[in-house]
Protein backbone atom coordinates (compact mmCIF):
# COMPACT_ATOMS: atom_id res chain seq x y z
CA UNK A 1 0.00 0.00 0.00
CA UNK A 2 1.47 3.35 -0.99
CA UNK A 3 1.87 5.92 1.73
CA UNK A 4 0.14 8.60 -0.33
CA UNK A 5 -3.16 6.68 -0.38
CA UNK A 6 -3.16 5.76 3.29
CA UNK A 7 -3.85 8.53 5.75
CA UNK A 8 -1.08 9.14 8.24
CA UNK A 9 -2.04 7.36 11.48
CA UNK A 10 -3.59 9.70 14.03
CA UNK A 11 -2.79 9.04 17.69
CA UNK A 12 -6.04 8.12 19.41
CA UNK A 13 -5.27 6.90 22.91
CA UNK A 14 -2.13 8.26 24.54
CA UNK A 15 -0.79 6.99 27.86
CA UNK A 16 1.79 9.27 29.45
CA UNK A 17 3.75 8.05 32.46
CA UNK A 18 0.77 6.19 33.88
CA UNK A 19 1.48 4.72 37.32
CA UNK A 20 -0.91 3.17 39.77
CA UNK A 21 -0.27 2.35 43.40
CA UNK A 22 -2.78 0.51 45.56
CA UNK A 23 -2.75 0.33 49.34
CA UNK A 24 -2.63 -3.27 50.46
CA UNK A 25 -2.87 -3.75 54.24
CA UNK A 26 -1.44 -0.27 54.65
CA UNK A 27 1.54 -1.05 52.41
CA UNK A 28 1.72 0.72 49.07
CA UNK A 29 1.77 -1.72 46.16
CA UNK A 30 2.79 -0.43 42.76
CA UNK A 31 0.91 -2.30 40.04
CA UNK A 32 1.76 -0.06 37.10
CA UNK A 33 4.96 1.85 36.64
CA UNK A 34 5.37 4.74 34.18
CA UNK A 35 3.49 3.37 31.18
CA UNK A 36 4.00 5.28 27.94
CA UNK A 37 2.00 4.06 24.97
CA UNK A 38 0.35 5.56 21.92
CA UNK A 39 -2.44 3.71 20.15
CA UNK A 40 -3.40 5.01 16.72
CA UNK A 41 -6.88 5.59 15.44
CA UNK A 42 -8.45 2.39 14.13
CA UNK A 43 -5.64 0.27 15.49
CA UNK A 44 -6.13 -3.12 17.10
CA UNK A 45 -3.75 -3.43 20.04
CA UNK A 46 -3.51 -6.32 22.48
CA UNK A 47 -2.16 -5.91 26.00
CA UNK A 48 -0.56 -9.23 26.80
CA UNK A 49 0.87 -10.32 30.10
CA UNK A 50 0.63 -12.69 33.05
CA UNK A 51 -2.14 -12.37 35.62
CA UNK A 52 -1.53 -9.51 38.01
CA UNK A 53 0.70 -7.53 35.65
CA UNK A 54 -1.64 -4.55 35.80
CA UNK A 55 -2.94 -4.75 32.23
CA UNK A 56 -6.57 -4.78 33.36
CA UNK A 57 -5.88 -1.87 35.69
CA UNK A 58 -4.45 0.05 32.77
CA UNK A 59 -7.58 -0.66 30.76
CA UNK A 60 -9.80 0.43 33.65
CA UNK A 61 -7.87 3.68 33.86
CA UNK A 62 -8.29 4.24 30.11
CA UNK A 63 -12.00 3.45 30.47
CA UNK A 64 -12.34 6.11 33.17
CA UNK A 65 -13.32 3.70 35.95
CA UNK A 66 -10.11 4.27 37.89
CA UNK A 67 -7.71 7.18 38.21
CA UNK A 68 -3.97 6.83 37.78
CA UNK A 69 -1.75 7.70 40.74
CA UNK A 70 0.56 9.59 38.39
CA UNK A 71 0.48 10.35 34.68
CA UNK A 72 -2.51 10.64 32.39
CA UNK A 73 -4.48 8.98 29.61
CA UNK A 74 -5.71 11.18 26.78
CA UNK A 75 -8.13 10.29 24.04
CA UNK A 76 -8.21 12.73 21.14
CA UNK A 77 -6.09 15.01 23.30
CA UNK A 78 -8.59 15.19 26.17
CA UNK A 79 -7.72 13.64 29.52
CA UNK A 80 -9.94 10.78 30.64
CA UNK A 81 -11.58 11.47 33.98
CA UNK A 82 -14.85 9.53 33.70
CA UNK A 83 -16.48 6.84 31.57
CA UNK A 84 -18.29 7.88 28.42
CA UNK A 85 -20.46 5.99 25.98
CA UNK A 86 -18.14 7.07 23.16
CA UNK A 87 -15.67 4.58 24.57
CA UNK A 88 -17.22 1.29 25.56
CA UNK A 89 -15.94 -1.37 27.87
CA UNK A 90 -16.63 -5.03 27.11
CA UNK A 91 -16.33 -7.13 30.26
CA UNK A 92 -15.28 -10.70 30.74
CA UNK A 93 -17.92 -11.53 33.32
CA UNK A 94 -21.11 -10.72 31.61
CA UNK A 95 -21.82 -7.04 31.93
CA UNK A 96 -25.15 -7.39 30.16
CA UNK A 97 -28.19 -7.15 32.42
CA UNK A 98 -29.80 -10.53 33.14
CA UNK A 99 -33.12 -8.84 33.95
CA UNK A 100 -33.49 -7.34 30.49
CA UNK A 101 -34.13 -8.97 27.12
CA UNK A 102 -31.46 -8.98 24.41
CA UNK A 103 -33.22 -6.05 22.75
CA UNK A 104 -33.43 -4.02 25.96
CA UNK A 105 -29.77 -4.70 26.68
CA UNK A 106 -28.58 -3.61 23.26
CA UNK A 107 -30.74 -0.49 23.30
CA UNK A 108 -29.18 0.71 26.58
CA UNK A 109 -26.66 3.11 25.09
CA UNK A 110 -29.06 4.57 22.50
CA UNK A 111 -32.13 4.84 24.72
CA UNK A 112 -32.35 8.60 24.16
CA UNK A 113 -32.67 8.25 20.39
CA UNK A 114 -36.02 8.06 18.60
CA UNK A 115 -37.81 4.72 18.45
CA UNK A 116 -37.22 4.49 14.70
CA UNK A 117 -33.49 5.11 15.14
CA UNK A 118 -33.36 2.51 17.92
CA UNK A 119 -35.02 -0.05 15.67
CA UNK A 120 -32.63 0.64 12.84
CA UNK A 121 -29.46 0.51 14.95
CA UNK A 122 -30.42 -2.47 17.12
CA UNK A 123 -31.48 -4.43 14.03
CA UNK A 124 -28.17 -3.60 12.42
CA UNK A 125 -25.86 -4.57 15.29
CA UNK A 126 -27.86 -7.67 16.12
CA UNK A 127 -27.38 -8.79 12.55
CA UNK A 128 -23.70 -7.85 12.76
CA UNK A 129 -23.14 -10.18 15.73
CA UNK A 130 -25.46 -12.86 14.34
CA UNK A 131 -28.20 -12.82 16.94
CA UNK A 132 -31.22 -12.43 14.66
CA UNK A 133 -34.29 -14.06 16.16
CA UNK A 134 -33.07 -13.75 19.75
CA UNK A 135 -34.17 -10.16 20.36
CA UNK A 136 -36.85 -11.16 22.90
CA UNK A 137 -34.72 -13.79 24.66
CA UNK A 138 -33.31 -13.24 28.13
CA UNK A 139 -29.60 -13.74 28.83
CA UNK A 140 -30.26 -16.79 31.01
CA UNK A 141 -31.67 -18.53 27.94
CA UNK A 142 -28.47 -17.93 25.95
CA UNK A 143 -25.14 -19.72 25.85
CA UNK A 144 -21.97 -18.02 27.07
CA UNK A 145 -20.90 -17.18 23.53
CA UNK A 146 -24.25 -15.65 22.69
CA UNK A 147 -24.20 -13.54 25.85
CA UNK A 148 -20.83 -12.20 24.82
CA UNK A 149 -22.25 -11.37 21.38
CA UNK A 150 -25.02 -9.41 23.12
CA UNK A 151 -22.37 -7.51 25.02
CA UNK A 152 -20.48 -6.74 21.81
CA UNK A 153 -23.73 -5.68 20.11
CA UNK A 154 -24.56 -3.38 23.01
CA UNK A 155 -21.13 -1.80 22.69
CA UNK A 156 -21.37 -1.40 18.90
CA UNK A 157 -24.83 0.18 19.08
CA UNK A 158 -23.37 3.45 20.37
CA UNK A 159 -20.81 3.48 17.53
CA UNK A 160 -17.90 3.97 19.92
CA UNK A 161 -14.55 5.20 18.63
CA UNK A 162 -12.75 3.05 21.19
CA UNK A 163 -13.54 -0.43 22.44
CA UNK A 164 -11.91 -1.62 25.64
CA UNK A 165 -12.08 -5.38 25.86
CA UNK A 166 -10.97 -7.02 29.11
CA UNK A 167 -10.45 -10.72 28.32
CA UNK A 168 -13.89 -10.71 26.73
CA UNK A 169 -13.71 -14.33 25.60
CA UNK A 170 -11.95 -15.65 28.69
CA UNK A 171 -14.95 -17.51 30.05
CA UNK A 172 -15.80 -19.28 26.78
CA UNK A 173 -14.81 -22.66 25.42
CA UNK A 174 -11.95 -22.69 22.93
CA UNK A 175 -14.06 -23.28 19.79
CA UNK A 176 -16.49 -20.49 20.60
CA UNK A 177 -13.50 -18.28 21.35
CA UNK A 178 -12.06 -18.92 17.88
CA UNK A 179 -15.38 -18.14 16.20
CA UNK A 180 -15.84 -14.94 18.14
CA UNK A 181 -12.29 -13.79 17.35
CA UNK A 182 -13.00 -14.21 13.63
CA UNK A 183 -16.23 -12.26 14.02
CA UNK A 184 -14.54 -9.54 16.03
CA UNK A 185 -11.99 -9.12 13.23
CA UNK A 186 -14.78 -8.93 10.67
CA UNK A 187 -16.59 -6.27 12.72
CA UNK A 188 -13.35 -4.37 13.25
CA UNK A 189 -12.70 -4.37 9.51
CA UNK A 190 -16.20 -3.14 8.84
CA UNK A 191 -16.29 -0.35 11.42
CA UNK A 192 -12.64 0.28 12.28
CA UNK A 193 -12.96 1.28 15.91
CA UNK A 194 -9.76 1.55 17.92
CA UNK A 195 -9.55 -1.60 20.02
CA UNK A 196 -7.55 -2.17 23.20
CA UNK A 197 -7.81 -5.82 24.01
CA UNK A 198 -6.46 -7.33 27.23
CA UNK A 199 -5.53 -11.00 27.20
CA UNK A 200 -3.11 -13.46 28.75
CA UNK A 201 -3.48 -15.81 25.79
CA UNK A 202 -0.55 -15.59 23.38
CA UNK A 203 -2.48 -17.14 20.48
CA UNK A 204 -5.38 -14.79 20.99
CA UNK A 205 -3.08 -11.79 20.81
CA UNK A 206 -1.34 -13.24 17.75
CA UNK A 207 -4.57 -13.82 15.90
CA UNK A 208 -6.10 -10.42 16.61
CA UNK A 209 -3.60 -7.66 17.10
CA UNK A 210 -1.64 -5.41 14.80
CA UNK A 211 0.60 -4.65 17.73
CA UNK A 212 1.08 -6.59 20.93
CA UNK A 213 2.13 -4.75 24.07
CA UNK A 214 3.89 -7.30 26.28
CA UNK A 215 3.84 -6.59 30.01
CA UNK A 216 6.18 -7.76 32.71
CA UNK A 217 4.77 -8.16 36.20
CA UNK A 218 5.14 -6.41 39.55
CA UNK A 219 5.16 -3.60 38.96
CA UNK A 220 3.57 -3.75 35.52
CA UNK A 221 5.91 -2.36 32.89
CA UNK A 222 5.97 -2.59 29.12
CA UNK A 223 8.59 -5.23 28.29
CA UNK A 224 8.34 -4.78 24.54
CA UNK A 225 5.93 -3.88 21.80
CA UNK A 226 5.76 -6.54 19.10
CA UNK A 227 4.28 -5.76 15.69
CA UNK A 228 2.39 -8.49 13.87
CA UNK A 229 2.74 -7.42 10.25
CA UNK A 230 0.63 -10.22 8.88
CA UNK A 231 -2.51 -9.53 6.86
CA UNK A 232 -5.73 -11.30 7.76
CA UNK A 233 -6.59 -14.13 7.41
CA UNK A 234 -3.40 -15.16 9.15
CA UNK A 235 -1.80 -18.52 8.63
CA UNK A 236 -1.54 -19.68 12.21
CA UNK A 237 0.58 -22.69 11.22
CA UNK A 238 3.17 -20.70 9.26
CA UNK A 239 6.81 -19.94 10.01
CA UNK A 240 6.36 -16.21 10.55
CA UNK A 241 3.56 -16.84 13.03
CA UNK A 242 5.71 -19.34 14.85
CA UNK A 243 8.67 -16.97 15.06
CA UNK A 244 6.62 -14.12 16.55
CA UNK A 245 4.98 -16.52 18.95
CA UNK A 246 8.35 -17.79 20.15
CA UNK A 247 9.47 -14.23 20.70
CA UNK A 248 6.36 -13.55 22.79
CA UNK A 249 6.90 -16.63 24.94
CA UNK A 250 10.49 -15.55 25.45
CA UNK A 251 9.39 -12.09 26.57
CA UNK A 252 6.85 -13.59 28.94
CA UNK A 253 9.61 -15.78 30.35
CA UNK A 254 7.84 -19.06 29.78
CA UNK A 255 8.90 -22.06 27.76
CA UNK A 256 7.07 -22.69 24.50
CA UNK A 257 7.95 -26.34 24.40
CA UNK A 258 6.22 -28.93 26.48
Amino acid sequence: MSSSKRKAPQPKVVFEGVSKTFKKKGEPLEVLSAIDLTVDEGEFVCLLGPSGCGKSTLLNIAGGFERPTRGSVKIDGAEIVAPSSKRVFVFQEYGIFPWASVWDNVVLGIRHKSKAEQHRIVGEVIELVGLEGFERAYPMELSGGMKQRVEVARALAVEPDVLFMDEPFGALDSLTRLTLRTELLRIWNERKPTILFVTHDVDEAMQLAERIVVFSARPGRIAEIVSVDMPHPRDIGGVEYGNIKNRLYELLGVTHMI
Binding site: P83, S85, V88, F89, F91, G95, F97, L108, V158
Partner: peptide, 27 residues
Protein backbone atom coordinates in the same frame (compact mmCIF):
# COMPACT_ATOMS: atom_id res chain seq x y z
CA UNK B 1 -25.06 -5.59 42.88
CA UNK B 2 -22.07 -6.64 40.83
CA UNK B 3 -19.37 -4.10 40.05
CA UNK B 4 -19.56 -5.07 36.38
CA UNK B 5 -23.24 -4.09 36.18
CA UNK B 6 -22.58 -0.83 37.98
CA UNK B 7 -19.77 -0.03 35.58
CA UNK B 8 -21.88 -0.99 32.56
CA UNK B 9 -24.50 1.47 33.71
CA UNK B 10 -21.86 4.13 34.30
CA UNK B 11 -20.33 3.46 30.88
CA UNK B 12 -23.63 4.10 29.13
CA UNK B 13 -24.38 7.22 31.13
CA UNK B 14 -27.17 5.78 33.30
CA UNK B 15 -27.37 7.82 36.48
CA UNK B 16 -29.59 9.14 39.28
CA UNK B 17 -33.25 8.14 39.07
CA UNK B 18 -32.71 6.22 35.86
CA UNK B 19 -29.97 4.23 37.57
CA UNK B 20 -32.46 3.12 40.23
CA UNK B 21 -35.11 2.22 37.69
CA UNK B 22 -32.85 0.50 35.17
CA UNK B 23 -30.19 -1.12 37.32
CA UNK B 24 -30.51 -0.92 41.11
CA UNK B 25 -34.13 -2.03 41.42
CA UNK B 26 -34.10 -4.79 38.78
CA UNK B 27 -30.75 -6.13 40.02
Amino acid sequence: ISLVHQRSALNFGVRRFELFRRVVLPA
